Deep mutational scan, measured.
Amino acid sequence: NQASVVANQLIPIQTALTLVMMRSEVVTPVGIPAEDIPRLVSMQVNRAVPLGTTLMPDMVKGYA
Results as ranks from 00 to 15, higher is better:
N1R: 04
N1H: 12
N1D: 15
N1W: 10
Q2S: 13
Q2L: 15
Q2I: 09
Q2M: 12
Q2T: 14
Q2G: 14
Q2V: 14
A3R: 06
S4T: 03
S4M: 02
V5C: 07
V5N: 02
V5Y: 00
V5F: 03
V5T: 06
V5G: 02
V6W: 01
V6C: 05
V6Y: 00
V6H: 00
V6T: 05
A7E: 01
A7F: 00
A7Q: 03
N8C: 07
Q9K: 15
L10S: 14
L10Q: 11
L10V: 13
L10E: 09
L10K: 13
I11D: 02
I11N: 01
I11V: 06
I11Q: 01
P12M: 07
P12A: 09
P12Y: 05
I13Y: 14
I13W: 10
I13V: 13
I13D: 15
Q14A: 15
Q14V: 05
T15C: 08
T15V: 12
A16W: 10
A16N: 09
L17I: 10
L17P: 04
L17N: 03
T18C: 05
T18G: 04
L19H: 15
L19E: 09
L19R: 12
L19C: 12
L19M: 13
V20N: 15
V20E: 10
V20F: 15
M21G: 02
M21Q: 03
M21T: 03
M21D: 04
M21I: 04
M21R: 00
M21V: 04
M21N: 08
M21A: 04
M21K: 00
M21S: 03
M22C: 04
M22S: 00
R23A: 07
R23F: 04
R23M: 05
R23E: 04
R23W: 04
R23G: 09
R23V: 08
S24E: 13
S24M: 07
S24N: 06
E25S: 10
E25F: 06
V26I: 14
V26M: 11
V26T: 11
V26D: 11
V26N: 11
V26F: 09
V27N: 02
V27P: 01
T28R: 04
T28L: 09
T28Y: 11
T28K: 06
T28D: 15
T28G: 06
P29L: 05
P29W: 04
P29F: 04
P29G: 04
P29Y: 04
P29C: 06
P29S: 04
V30K: 07
V30Y: 12
V30H: 12
V30A: 09
V30G: 08
G31D: 00
G31E: 01
G31V: 01
I32C: 05
I32M: 01
I32A: 01
P33K: 09
P33F: 08
P33D: 07
P33I: 09
P33R: 09
P33V: 10
P33S: 09
P33H: 08
A34P: 05
A34M: 06
A34D: 08
A34L: 03
A34N: 06
A34E: 09
E35K: 07
E35H: 12
E35L: 12
E35F: 08
D36P: 00
D36A: 11
D36W: 08
I37K: 05
I37A: 08
I37D: 00
P38L: 13
P38Q: 14
P38T: 13
P38H: 15
R39V: 08
R39N: 10
R39M: 13
L40H: 00
L40G: 00
L40P: 00
L40Q: 00
L40E: 00
V41Q: 06
V41N: 02
S42C: 15
S42F: 09
S42M: 15
M43W: 07
M43P: 00
M43K: 09
Q44R: 12
Q44D: 03
V45K: 00
V45M: 07
V45L: 09
N46R: 09
N46A: 12
N46H: 12
N46S: 11
N46G: 08
R47A: 10
R47H: 10
A48V: 13
A48W: 08
A48G: 08
A48T: 15
V49Y: 03
V49M: 03
V49P: 03
P50R: 12
P50D: 15
P50N: 10
P50H: 09
P50V: 07
L51A: 13
L51T: 11
L51G: 13
L51M: 15
L51F: 15
L51K: 12
G52I: 03
G52W: 04
G52K: 01
G52C: 04
G52Y: 04
T53Y: 10
T53V: 14
T53R: 09
T53E: 12
T53C: 08
T54P: 06
T54L: 04
T54G: 02
T54M: 04
L55N: 00
L55R: 00
L55Q: 01
M56K: 07
M56S: 06
M56I: 07
M56P: 02
P57L: 05
P57S: 12
D58H: 12
D58G: 09
D58S: 10
D58L: 07
M59P: 01
M59A: 07
M59K: 03
M59G: 03
V60P: 00
K61A: 14
G62R: 06
G62Q: 09
G62D: 14
Y63H: 04
Y63N: 03
Y63E: 03
A64N: 11
A64I: 13
A64E: 14
A64R: 10
A64D: 09
A64K: 13
